[in-house]
Design a protein around this nucleic acid. Structure first.
Ligand code: MN
Ligand code: MN
Ligand code: MN
Ligand code: MN
Lengths: 220, 220
DNA sequence: AAAAATAATTAGATTAATCTAAAACATAAT
DNA sequence: ATTATGTTTTAGATTAATCTAATTATTTTT
């Protein structure tokens, strides 16, 4: 049985190597991400090695073991199911759910999560467009691409954000971009790579390259 | 901010003095209840005193302070609201909710509980008939009495159980007694004080005095 | 009132998680 | 190939929560 803290470390390592699970994650990356010190991370990596959750070579970084990946997916599944519950049933805004889900993800009860999943009607994506792993660890894959990497004239629908921070989400609310909004790329400004987009066939808007990197769309 | 453990102690002390909040709760009682040692309890009582949550005199026992009562009621409110959610929306049986609620009660978010309360339509009682404290700490009172203390011929409806243990609840399920069942006292056997009751105007049944002590009814 | 029994506290360790400061290692720059 | 820089680990403490064993206080019995 993993402790609250161990679970947070495992999830963190997963997320830092999400695109390439063979990537060696560094001690400092983990420390930054969990807002703790490298020394604490080193200690914890020893413990997680003992529990066969990670492959760890001193000074060389860390990857999750098979078992570690399984555990990570369980926690992420719980986190995202709770997020769906909070938004769909308790009227939380998509920028308000993270801290609470960060706690709820640690509740231990297999039955609870099965029933919650059923209650929510087996959702495939969370309120930020992130895929919800199934009970057996399968992750739905979406063909999506950041707005910063599409061409003028392309169009699609918003299927996710790269970063679920309050700052980004509240900005998106402000300008009227949400999941499933349609986006058309009107122009890309060569000076700073900012992008002019049309939202839901209505208003047009300039977004910085930084923002463009953080909005994923599925092109049609 | 209270830790998970501190919250469990505060709730325990509350429950051990629920009928009479001025009652001095003993170290051993707390240790038994939390399945820990008297030594650990002594340590924790010092800490809770520091935090002004209890009134504690060495060797004399402990009562909750005003602040302690407030905190206890918050935790109990959360516990019972979650139990309602589990039973009403996730199809948990009334004997399955306790362990999960024991964890959920520690989730920290005022907004979450406000929204949950609203989602559940402001329930006044949990699945075991226990009253749910309001946000300001008010507790609905029900005039209820254990079956062991009523007279032959009296009748009423089940409004609670004294002990929400799996063993009792599963027995009640087995014999068809649930919240709001109507109960009529047919006979009280002088030999062992067991009670013959009629449930929902249908089947009659003998229950031991021990059981009778644990079912509360409101007489009509 | 003294002795015995019970209850509660303290002393001293242990484990988990954390930190700061110092040491060891790896990499980049000269 | 040294040196400098940055990264990671270890050494040594700290805090929270727990335990066993020893001590102290209270209550009950004789
Ligand atoms: Mn978390
Ligand atoms: Mn999310
Ligand atoms: Mn609890
Ligand atoms: Mn209950």
């Amino acid at each position: 049985m993993l402790s609250h803290t161990e679970e947070n470390y495992i999830k963190c390592i997963y997320q830092l190597s999400e695109n390439e699970l063979t990537k060696q994650v560094s001690t400092n990356e983990i420390a930054d991400n969990l807002e703790t010190t490298p020394a604490s991370v080193s200690d914890m990596l020893k413990k997680l090695t003992q529990k066969n959750l990670i492959n760890y070579i001193k000074y060389k970084g860390v990857t999750l073991s098979e078992q570690g990946i399984t555990e990570a997916l369980k926690i992420i599944r719980k986190h995202r199911l709770w997020e769906v519950f909070l938004v769909k049933h308790l009227n939380f805004a998509w920028d308000e759910v993270h801290e609470v889900a960060e706690q709820l993800e640690h509740i231990k009860s297999v039955l609870l999560i099965q029933r919650l999943d059923e209650f929510l009607d087996f959702p495939k994506f969370d309120p930020h467009g992130d895929p919800i792993p199934s009970q057996d660890g399968t992750i739905p894959i979406v063909q999506q691409i950041p707005i910063s990497e599409v061409n003028i004239g392309d169009h699609g629908t918003v299927t996710g954000v790269n970063d679920a921070s309050k700052a980004l989400l509240q900005y998106l609310d402000k300008v009227g971009i949400q999941l499933n909004s349609t986006i058309e790329i009107i122009d890309i400004i060569s000076f700073d790579q900012s992008v002019e987009i049309k939202i839901d066939h209505q208003k047009t808007l300039f977004i910085s390259q930084e923002i463009a990197k953080n909005i994923y769309i599925t092109t049609i």
